[in-house]
Structure formats: C-alpha cells, structure tokens
Nucleic acid binder design. Structure first.
Length: 900
RNA sequence: GGGCAAUUAGCUCAGCUGGUUAGAGCGCCACAUUGACAUUGUGGAGGUCACAAGUUCGAAUCUUGUAUUGCCCACCA
C-alpha cells in the first residue's frame, strides 16, 4: 500500500533512471511510421548552474515532447550545451584571478594555456548541467547530446563562414565598434548598456561658431563643423567653406559640412565631429568622405594629436583641457546639470569607447540567397519566412517586434577579440588573405587572432546537431556530401518547435533563421523553401520574476529561487506545474514558494486519490492491475456514467489545448477536474458503492493526461494501476475519445444531485445546525423527484440526513429552512433549532438578489431589438431563466408569508 | 525619440472569436475533522473589470482618447 503522503525525493531519480535505461527517450522507440517531432534544446551555457529560466524551458519542452511521443510521433529532443565564449572566458579568468592571485591570466598562461584551463572548467560544468537537466525530468535523447565546440559543429561553422566569404556575404572592413578598453575587446551592440549620468556640458568658441560637447577630450582632431543645410542662422556658410580657428593646441583649418542628421534645435545647431570615436560622426564622415583621425588609443589614453596631453587617460585629461580652453578665452558656458546616456559595458562595467577597427561582418543586404526563384538578401529572407507563415511565432505580437527589428538591422559584426570560441578561419601573409576550413599551405601565414561571435556558430544549432559526426569527421567530404550522409538531418529537420525566452529572440532566434536559411539554401539542400527553415513554430516564454515583479539577479541572492532547491523541497512535478499553469506565453510571470507548495499539495491530492482507489479495490479483493474492461453503460450508476462523460470531454479539452500550445489552460483544467470533480464529487459519491472498474479507468485516464505535466508522480502511480509487464506510462498512447461513453444526460443529472447536496449543506451552515446532527429533509420536485429518489443514499450520507421524504405535490412546511432550485424545493425541518429571524433574513436576502436579477432579465426581454437581433437560442434560454426565477420568487414569498 | 504590451478580489493571475448573476489559487472569517488526503473538508466575506467617450439589443472583451506601469530598440553632439 502507498504511503500517506507522496515523497518525490524517494522516487524521482529512480524513475528517471528507468526511463533512460529503457530507451524511451529515443525516437527509435516510437512507432516507425510516426511523424517526426523535433525540438532542439536551447543549449544552456556551459558555465555552471541551472537557473529558473532553464527550468521553465525544460518543463515546457518536456511537455511538448511527451505529448508528441504519446501521440505516436517520433519524438526527438536533442540536448546540448553552449561554449558561450565571452561569458565563459570571463568566468574562468575571474576564477583564476581570485583563486590563484594571477592579475592577468592571458599573459601568464598564454593562449594555449588559458584555453586548456577553460576547457577543463567547461567539461566539469557540463557534467553538472547534465545532472540538473535530468532532475527536471527532461526526456531528451542523451546519446545525441551535442556541444557547440564539438568537431562536427566547428566544421559546419567554418564551412559556412568560408562559403559566405566566397560569396561576398562575409567581408572584412573598418567599422565603428563598441570597444571596451577594460576588457580589451569589442562588444556587440546588445552587450552595451546605457546609464544616465549627469555631467558638465561645455560650449566653446570654434572660429565663428559655438559648439557644445560633454567630451572635450575627443575634440583635438576636430576639423569639420557640421550644420543642417536648412538652418537659416548659418545660411551664409556654404558646404565646403574653410576657415581658421584657434583651438586647443594652436590654430586649425576647419571645413564647413552641411548634413541633415544635425538637429538645429539642439544646442547651437552646430557641431564638430570626431569620426573615430562616435557612431554618428563616423557615418557623417563616410557620407562626405572626410578624414578620420584616431584620438584615443585602445587602452583609453590620448594619442600624439593631443600634444601636451598625450598619454593621459581621458578622465584625467578632461578637466585640464577645459582649463586650458578657458584660459584661452574659448569657453563660452558650462551647463552643469546636463543629463545624458553613457555607454557602459555589460560585461566589464567599464565605459565603452567607440573605435574604428578591422572586423568581420555579415552583409545582411547582399542579395546572395537563392530563394523563391531569385537571389534575395538575408534580411529579405528573414522577413519572408515569418510573413509567409512558414514560421509562426507564439505569441503573435512578437512577429511585429521581429519585423521592427529586421527593418533596423545593420550588418552583423561577427568577430570578437577573445580567445575562447571558434577562431576565425582566416590567415594573412603580406597583405594576402586566405579563408578556408583547412589552414593554407606554405609558410608565413598567420591566423586571425579573433574568434567568432558565439551566436554565429550556435545559430546553426538546429541542423548542425543532426549531422552525422562520422561523416563530418571525413575531410574528403564536402558539406553537401555530409548532408547526404546524415539521415537524421533529413528526417528530423526542420525542427517542429523552438521554445525559448523572448529575451533571446534577436540574439538567437532571428540569427538561427538567418544562418539556417542561408546554409540550407546555398547548399541547395531541401528543394522547397519550407524545408530550409530551422523550425516551424517559435514558442516564447517570459521572464520569471520575484513576487514583487523584480528581476531575480545574482547580485541579490535573496531574490533568487534555486530550482534544485525547490525540487528537493517540493518535487520536480510541483515545480513544473507552478511555472506553467497560469502563465501566458511571452508574458513575464512571478514565482514564489507558496505557489510551488500549492502545486505540491495538488500532487499529493492526486496521490491520495489514487490511494483511495487502491484501497477500495483492496477491500473487495480486486487487483486494479487486472481490470481491463468497463461494464456496459446501462449497468452503471449515475455518478459512474457522469464521470465517464466528463472524462471523455476532458480528453477533448486537453488534447485541443496541448495541440494549440495552450499549456496553461489545459493544465488548469486538469487541476480542477482532478480536485473539484474527481475528488470532491466522484470519489465522495463512490464511497460505499464504488464501481472499481470505473474508478480505475478514470484514474488511468487522469494519469495519462497529466503525465506530460507531472511525469514522475504519474509514472509512479501508473505502476500501481497497470501490470508491470505493460508499457511504462511514458511510452503509453494518448487516450482517444469514445463517443459511446459520452452521456450528457447523466452528467446533467449528476449536476442536479450536486446542487441539491450543496444546497442542503448551505442551509445547514446558514442555520448553524450542529455538525453531525441528523436532520429531516423534504424534497419537492416535479421533474427530478424520481432521479433524486434513486440517489437517496448519497444525499443521506453526504448531508447527514436522518429521514428524507420525496414528493411531487406541494407540501405545507413549518419550522423549516428552505432552498429553491429550479423545479426543486428543499425543506429542512428544524424542530428545536428554528430561528425565525435568521430564516427570514436569509429568505429576504435571496429575494432581493433574485428580484434584481428578474428585473434585469425583464428589461432585456422587453427590449425589442434584443428579441429581434439576438440569437434565438439565447432569447429562449433567457425566457426560461426568467420563468424559473419568477417561480422561485413566488415560492420565497409564500415561505415568507408562512413565517409571518 | 520609435515600437510593443499591461491595468480584473488584499496578493498572484485566468477569462478563446462580444452573450447566464465576472472565475481560480493563496490569504482572510466561521465551522468541521478517528478510514484517501491537515499537503484536508464544508460554508462565507471580498470586484462600478484603471478612467472617459464611442460602436452595439448587449462591452472586462471591439474602437478612440486619457492616466499609470513595464519591456524592447535607437541614442543626441
């Protein structure tokens, strides 16, 4: 017999191990003719700990996969980890700095040495992650686990890079980048955060103009003044005019430039530009072919052009420069409380200094992708996949956001000045450049020291993980031949659904669309465009926040909820439910311990309901595992027929909900079915008159339907109600709807019984009838008398009724509390307990409520346009409702008279 | 500055294409409790669905505007 309470800790690990051992996670265990259903697991960073973001991702994907598997699909879930270049490198460097007191591990260890250390760290960490993913119950195929630094994935990354280079989609060029002087690396736009700061805003005299700046230290090389061409104040200056201006270190010859990007309303409407250290200025300089002189070096110090200030860090130099200009009489004014945004590195926290550097870029506008009969740009293809409906994003509002992002998309800088990652497959020798998967032959070649943006490689994740590693290891094969020798790729790609957080829609989801459509199109693999996409559906989940709606952050450990902690306290099933039920896709949600505890209670309720079923069977010596047939409908009790009907409807609802990705709604329905219907009514009604076959049957249904949500407890219970020789629940088939078992009449009739029992209970409560004290009830009903008579035993037991009379005639009632349902009157004799005041009070309350309702209905029905235009059924329904309620009111009036 | 969303009970949230007297969980109040379950049961209190106008026979739901909040993108010399 089962314990009194479910103990997840004692069972979860063993159940997981048995699933894994049985091969149930592998698509090979599914029916051979099943439709493929694939999910690529977004690979967690190989830096350590599973957090709630991963937990919610794993829970959602596991539900998708288990549902698909039970529906006979060939379900494949590919797990993996990401090398996460920047994040991992900085974690390891910090670790070495802290633990070994090495100030600059790059210098001390060298490239090879540091990479070795990072590699060791990652191996260790990947093991931890694997264990944690298992704890969540994730049914992924571990034999297909991949890692972004696997040789196969490295090869596809280099192959595609080379191909893009050869087709001119990847180019090397000078571009303004976000340079982090502290970490000595380039940052992606997304890695820059802006902080509002208050700094002085200076206005200086510059020749005949006044110009303003918050960064005087960049102004040394300025020799262009820019203004809007339509600005009337500066009409007399023509584009290209030159003049001499006294400046920081002597006189400079300046040129007038007219450009529409200048806002005449801002400051004086005139500015000087620093093309080397400002994005906008760079663009202006590019437009007009202006010189770009570097003023600040890569460590953040001033260069020779600064004259006496050369070598100074900018924060030191700034006040000195202002002082000098003031002495020269060039300082016009200082605005002290100027607020503006300063670019900060999200990695190192230092101020970002824009610099011009040689970088590798992906050209998003070059028309190089064969798509629907012509060559299209990456941008156009990215738009088309979603616009044409090949890829569907859930929730749909993110499609708008996606398009908006693509409209503003610029070329993608893919090189990073770090060591950990895929090193750029480019070699240089005396001004020659070679790009290829294999190093060039001959001496004197030097490989680019940069690595690729992590997202470049991992953007191929959906398909590169399905490539056969053996084929990829053969250098004589071309990528196309490797594709041909990868049957899994053909079967399981495009993947069915990509589930991830909306925060990486741009970082990753969009870039997967970019890289995958490019790769599979250019390599002419997959004739139809719809076979060249990475996934058919994108399901985005929101951020999990604290109870107060704040972000959980490592810097405030008290706000963090550790999923592993919660699993050991409440079980993985409870955690999964708490993250999914009540959470709309794409919306942020709040999680706190009471919520998880609530779902733990639900799991326990299910456990005990099962325990009850087993006990019922035991009492009469039936082995629940051997039950396999349901008796004919006709021989079943009302409650049995009703619960069978309800469970058939439940199957329909849940199936529909899961198919349409409404996991929250379906979960909620399961919760209330189990608790509010199955436990509160059906189990209660079956006490004493249990039909064991129906009990076991409905319980099995519930276990199946709940299995995707809470796999552990349902699997555990399944072993109690099914022969061990049969399939484990994970491999069971999803229940089908049997129309024959539907019985709406029984369902409605049971509803009447429930109403009657509830009303009697309410009356007892209203009139403070002592608990346990048996009472006498008279039920008067025209339509339902016979029905209720047959359920007498239930009413008696569940309401503690001593004697019960049924009659179809109206009766004279005295000393009784009464309730009036439609067509049914209930009179509870209260001899000795009778409280006229209380009785009158409750009748008057009900009368007032009903009167209000009736007048509402009457108004509605006397409205001609309602009667004419509303659906006829609705009008009829409201008419019936009105008649019923008026009847009820009459009865209440009668009772009131009697009391008086 | 551009874009996207949200506002429903004390708290956290459901409420699908407009249609019974707006729901759940937690919390609160009262009562119960030896046999599935105190990780429980029964009953209850608590809401002008942010505000205003409009469309409609009918609006939490559709339209417009206002207010508040949140997020994303861009970033101003």
């Amino acid at each position: 017999m089962l314990d009194k309470a479910y103990d997840p800790k004692a069972t979860e690990d063993a159940i997981y191990a048995s699933w894994e051992k049985s091969g149930a996670f592998k698509p090979e265990s599914c029916p051979k003719d099943g439709e493929p259903f694939t999910i690529s697991m977004p690979p967690p960073n190989a830096t350590g700990q599973l957090h709630l973001g991963h937990a919610v991702m794993l829970a959602l994907e596991d539900i998708f996969i288990r549902f698909a598997r039970m529906n006979g699909k060939r379900a494949l879930w590919v797990p993996g980890t990401d090398h996460a270049s920047i994040a991992t490198e900085s974690v390891v460097i910090r670790k070495i700095q802290k633990e070994e007191k090495v100030t600059d591990p790059r210098k001390t260890l060298g490239r090879e040495g540091l990479l070795k250390r990072i590699h060791e760290f990652v191996e260790d960490s990947r093991g931890t992650i694997r264990g944690q993913v298992r704890k969540m119950g994730s049914s992924c195929d571990w034999e297909r686990e991949r890692y972004t630094m696997d040789p196969t994935l490295a090869r596809t990354t280099y192959e595609i890079f080379t191909d893009m280079y050869n087709k001119g989609v990847i180019y090397r060029g000078h571009r303004m980048v976000n340079w982090d002087p502290k970490l000595q690396t380039t940052l992606a736009d997304d890695e820059v955060v802006y902080e509002e700061k208050t700094e002085p805003f200076y206005t200086f005299r510059y020749g005949p103009f006044e110009i303003s700046t918050s960064r005087p230290e960049t102004k040394f090389g300025d020799k262009y003044v820019v203004m809007h061409p339509d600005d009337k104040r500066y009409k007399k200056y023509k584009h290209g005019d030159t003049f001499d201006a006294e400046w920081i270190n002597g006189s400079v010859r300046a040129t007038v430039i007219k450009d529409t990007s200048v806002d005449p309303e801002f400051g004086t409407g005139v500015m000087t530009i620093t093309p080397s250290h400002d994005h906008i200025d760079f663009e202006i300089a590019e437009r007009h072919g202006l010189e770009k002189e570097q003023v600040i070096d890569f460590s953040g110090a001033l260069l020779k052009v600064a004259g006496e200030f050369a070598g100074m860090k900018i924060d030191v130099a700034r006040p000195l420069i202002v002082e000098k200009l003031e002495k020269k009489g060039l300082l016009v004014s200082v605005k002290k409380d100027y607020q503006h945004n300063v670019a900060i590195s999200s990695r190192g926290g230092g101020i970002v200094e824009p610099q011009i550097k040689e970088q590798w870029f992906v050209d998003v506008n070059r028309e190089a992708v064969p798509w629907k009969g012509s060559k299209q740009s990456l941008k156009a293809v990215m738009q088309d996949t979603v616009r044409s409906g090949m890829i569907k994003i859930i929730p749909a509002q993110f499609e708008k956001i996606y398009f908006n992002w693509i409209d503003n998309l610029r070329d993608w800088c893919v090189s990073r000045q770090i060591w950990w990652g895929h090193r750029i497959p480019a070699w240089y020798r005396n001004g020659e450049t070679y790009v290829g998967v294999q190093p060039p032959e001959g001496d004197g070649w030097e490989q680019d020291s940069d690595t690729l943006d992590t997202w470049f490689g991992v953007a191929q994740w959906t398909w590169s993980t399905l490539i056969d590693p053996k084929a990829a290891a053969d250098p004589s094969l071309s990528l196309r031949q490797i594709f041909e020798k990868s049957p899994h790729l053909k079967t399981f790609h495009p993947t069915t659904v990509m589930e991830t957080g909306y925060d990486i829609l741009f970082f990753w989801v969009a870039r997967m669309i970019l890289m995958t459509t490019y790769s599979l199109s250019v390599l002419a693999w997959g004739k139809d465009e719809s076979e060249r996409i990475p996934f058919k559906t994108v399901y985005l989940h929101g951020l999990i926040r604290t109870r107060d709606g704040k972000k959980m952050s490592k810097s405030h450990p008290e706000t963090m909820i550790d999923p592993l902690d919660m699993i050991s306290k409440y079980g993985a099933d409870a955690l999964r439910l708490s993250m999914i039920v009540g959470q709309a896709p794409g919306a942020d949600s709040r999680l706190y311990e009471e919520k998880i505890a609530g779902y733990r209670n639900f799991i326990n309720k299910l456990w005990n309901a099962s325990r009850f079923v087993l006990m019922q069977c035991e009492q009469v010596g039936i082995d629940p595992k051997t039950i396999d047939k349901l008796p004919e409908n006709a021989s079943l009790s009302l409650a049995d027929r009703a619960v069978l009907h309800a469970s058939e409807c439940l199957i329909e609802d849940i199936t529909k909900g899961l198919r349409s990705y409404n996991l929250s709604g379906a979960g909620d329905k399961l919760y209330s079915f189990v608790w509010d219907y199955f436990c509160d009514w059906y189990l209660e009604l079956s006490k004493g008159t249990a039909n064991h076959a129906v009990l076991v049957h409905v319980l099995r249904r519930i276990l199946k339907l709940l299995h995707p949500y809470c796999p552990f407890v349902t699997e555990q219970l399944w072993g109690q109600v099914k022969k061990t020789a049969d399939r484990a629940l994970i491999s069971e088939t999803w229940p089908a709807v049997h129309e024959k078992r539907k019985d709406p009449k029984a369902f409605m009739d049971l509803q009447v019984l429930i109403d009657v029992i509830s009303s009697i209970r309410k009356l007892r409560n209203d009139h403070n009838v002592e608990p346990g004290k048996e009472i006498t009830v008279t039920i008067v009903g025209k339509k339902f008398c016979e029905l209720l008579e047959s359920q007498e035993a239930h009413i008696r037991r569940m309401c503690k009724v001593g004697s019960l009379t049924f009659t179809t005639d109206s009766v004279k009632v005295e000393n009784a509390a009464s309730a009036f349902l439609s067509d049914i009157e209930i009179h509870l004799s209260l001899a000795g307990l009778f409280d006229a005041g209380k009785l009158k009070e409750s009748l008057l309350r009900e009368q007032a409520e009903l009167t209000k309702y009736v007048s509402g209905l009457q108004g509605k029905l006397s409205n001609k346009s309602f009667v004419d235009k509303a659906p006829k059924e609705l009008v009829d329904e409201q008419k019936t409702k009105l008649a019923e309620t008026e009847e009820k009111l009459k009865k209440i009036e009668e009772r009131l008279k009697q009391i008086d």
